[in-house]
Computed example of a mutant assay.
Amino acid sequence: MTEEKIEYWRNPIVPEMELSTASFQHFEFAQHVHLDYHIGVVTQGGQKYQHKGESYHLSKGCISTLNPDEAHNGQSVEEEGYQANVMSIPITYINQITSELSIREQFFSSPLSWAPDLHQAFLHLHKNLTSPHAKQAQLQIETSLMAFTTELFERYGSVKKLSHQQHALSSQQVVDIKSQFHDEMHNVFQLDDLAASVGLSKFQFLRQFKAATGMTPHAYLKRVRLEYAKKALAKGEAVIDIALQVGFFDQSHLNKAFKQAFLITPSHFQKRVI
């Protein structure tokens, strides 16, 4: 690895959030601070850095959680260099999440944690946020980002809880949301709109829907789409037409989701059942 570079993205789903991928071999970060929360992982090699007088080694399976205004540096552990993915989350977004969690103070207690599950979740989320199809997958991405950020703070944050009474999602409202997914599965749903329709914040709606159904809104909607796709395939309809009818933005995305769920491609399934 010889090329030193950083590539940046922004996603309209969280306009102030900065996303980056980097490859470094000899470049070293001097002592510096950030204005936002910096979450990062390495995908190759390792990075070492100094933080409040302690040395840390960021390797695969670990996740770096740096609070705003905390000084640190950074350099490669190995001569071959390292690759890293970083997500810079604005304070305003974190404040929204922690407010919904009834947290009075929010900061990470350590700049580095061993968390293979969150390492993988971060990579998947980062990939989705930097995808050219991100806008079409907004419900999925918003759900994943909220769940990931919440898990980070609940697992590694130093927090003080406040008591807070929340409006509950009623059984009828759950039924109404499900019916909307069934009746309008071809539509692009926005988490803001779904939450507003039942008088909840996005975060409250996400948590309460999952508590009521055992699935996130995105996961439920995706499964509904796949179930209807199976029925259409059994009737002999064209795969590309089915993809659009049930809400996937092209045939390849239906193929990927279908195989992940049923271990067979839509075309192979159709041949088996007709």
Rank of each mutant, 00 (worst) to 15 (best):
A234F: 03
Y82S: 02
A243S: 14
C62S: 12
Q165T: 06
N255L: 02
E28Y: 01
A22W: 00
E227P: 00
S110Q: 13
A232L: 15
H268F: 08
E4F: 04
R225W: 03
A115V: 04
A243E: 06
F108L: 10
H186A: 10
F249W: 14
V224C: 08
Y37C: 01
K256G: 05
F122C: 02
K202S: 05
P68A: 04
F203C: 03
L226W: 10
F29K: 03
S55D: 12
Q138F: 08
Q138H: 12
K60R: 12
E7V: 11
E70L: 11
S109A: 14
Q166F: 15
H186V: 09
L162S: 14
I94N: 00
Q75S: 11
V41N: 01
E80V: 05
I63F: 13
H253F: 13
V159K: 04
W114F: 14
I240R: 07
V159W: 04
V198G: 02
K60V: 08
S64M: 11
L58I: 04
Q120N: 10
Y37R: 00
S55K: 14
L66Q: 13
G45H: 06
V224E: 06
E4I: 03
V33I: 12
E151G: 01
G46A: 15
E78S: 13
H253I: 04
S23H: 11
I63V: 12
H72T: 08
D117I: 05
L125C: 09
A121G: 01
E154C: 07
F153E: 01
E237V: 09
E142H: 04
N11I: 11
Q173M: 11
I97L: 15
T216M: 07
F209C: 01
P90K: 05
K256P: 02
G53V: 04
A22S: 13
P217W: 03
G53W: 01
A71N: 09
S171Q: 15
T265S: 14
L226D: 05
Y156H: 12
Q50W: 10
F108T: 02
S158H: 14
A84E: 11
A147I: 06
I141N: 05
A243G: 03
S170V: 04
Q173T: 06
N11L: 08
V77D: 09
S99Y: 15
F148E: 07
P90E: 07
F107E: 14
K259V: 03
F122S: 00
V246F: 00
K210I: 01
M185Q: 13
I94W: 14
K52H: 07
G236R: 12
N73A: 03
